[in-house]
């Protein structure tokens, strides 16, 4: 056993190299973030402007909240493609509830409920129906968008209650409220994943489902919980999205959010097949995406080319991450 101790603690020369490679494999996303951050500040001095920085945070907060949920889903070994559509559906229904009741609280609550319920259905399909998550949520993606379009008759719905817009447009100190909601959610999800049994079970399930089940874990319930959780977070995101412009479009709101969320999770180093990954990685993943978008805007890159750069970064990120 002495051998193992020396391996852990000896300051010998070969361990320097192995320590660097450990640092890289564990925190490559943070290193990448720092490099991109520095590059951005060198390339454009306006980047470092505090208002620009806060603007980036504001822009990533909605996708960020969804990406937190996506991390949990992907850690469990699944994927959720329905987030964008469910966001639109939750937004549309919550605006209707808001206008009908005149209560902001009811509006917010409705959005959370619709999101959670859609997530719950996804969870039922995956856990009890044994449908692959890709397929189940693909179905939900089409269905939720369709219902949103039907309810809003293909257009947008707008809030008629004053004060609702305050949610996304107010500041606390220098921070926009959505940014603080994003941070609060990040802390919450971090605690759930690392300090509660639910989080532990999600990792176990994503790593080895059979062993998790044979360890007397109710795998089905955890799966349903995972999808309900992301659904609820999508509900939160829907509230912010709706509140920002006091309206939501049944056709375009939330479009392709699933791709950005998945991209953030992947850049953040979470393994596609589940079991390994970190919430903190996803946060840096989403920040990298935000900085890239911001830089391209500052440098007047054609918006048509921005998707290309984003795609390139995702692929580079995955290539550089240590693969097993």
């Amino acid at each position: 056993m002495d051998n193992i101790n020396t391996k852990e603690y000896s300051p010998e020369s070969p361990s320097m190299k192995s320590r660097l490679s450990w640092l890289w494999s564990e925190y490559s996303v943070i290193i990448a973030f720092i490099i991109i951050f520095i590059a951005a500040s060198v390339m454009n001095p306006r980047f470092l402007d505090i208002n620009n920085q806060l603007n980036i945070l504001m822009q990533v907060s909605i996708i960020g909240i969804i990406a937190l949920g996506m991390t949990v889903v992907m850690l469990s070994g699944g994927i959720d493609l329905s987030v964008g559509s469910v966001l639109a559906l939750a937004g549309v229904i919550s605006v209707l509830a808001l206008n009908a009741s005149g209560s902001i609280l009811i509006g917010v609550f409705t959005a959370l409920l619709v999101g959670a319920f859609a997530g719950f259905l996804n969870g039922l399909m995956v856990a009890k129906g044994r449908i692959a998550s890709f397929i189940a949520t693909l179905g939900m993606m089409a269905a939720a968008r369709s219902i949103a379009l039907y309810i809003a008759e293909g257009g947008s719905v707008s809030g008629e209650v004053s004060g609702f817009t305050a949610i996304a447009n107010n500041n606390v100190w220098i921070f926009d409220l959505p940014v603080l909601i994003f941070f609060a959610m990040a802390v919450l999800i971090y605690i759930v994943m690392h300090k509660t049994r639910f989080g532990r079970y999600v990792y176990a399930l994503g790593s080895n489902e059979k062993a998790a089940m044979l360890s007397a874990i109710r795998v089905d319930r955890i799966k349903i919980g995972v999808y309900t959780l992301i659904g609820t977070l999508v509900g939160v995101a829907a509230v912010i999205e709706t509140s920002r412009l006091n309206s939501i479009s049944s056709s375009s709101s939330g479009a392709q959010y699933e791709l950005d969320a998945i991209a953030a999770v992947i850049i953040g180093g979470t393994r596609m097949t589940g079991g390994r990954g970190k919430i903190i990685g996803t946060i840096f993943g989403i920040l990298i995406l935000g900085i890239l978008n911001n830089m391209m805007n500052l440098m007047n890159v054609s918006p048509h080319l921005q998707g290309f750069v984003k795609g390139l970064i995702i692929i580079i990120a995955v290539v550089f991450q240590k693969r097993e």
């Binding site: 990792y203 790593s207 080895n208 059979k210 044979l214 079991g275």
Partner: peptide, 8 residues
């Protein structure tokens, strides 16, 4: 396959 959760 059945007992250890290798990522934990």
């Amino acid at each position: 396959e059945n007992a250890i959760i290798k990522d934990l």
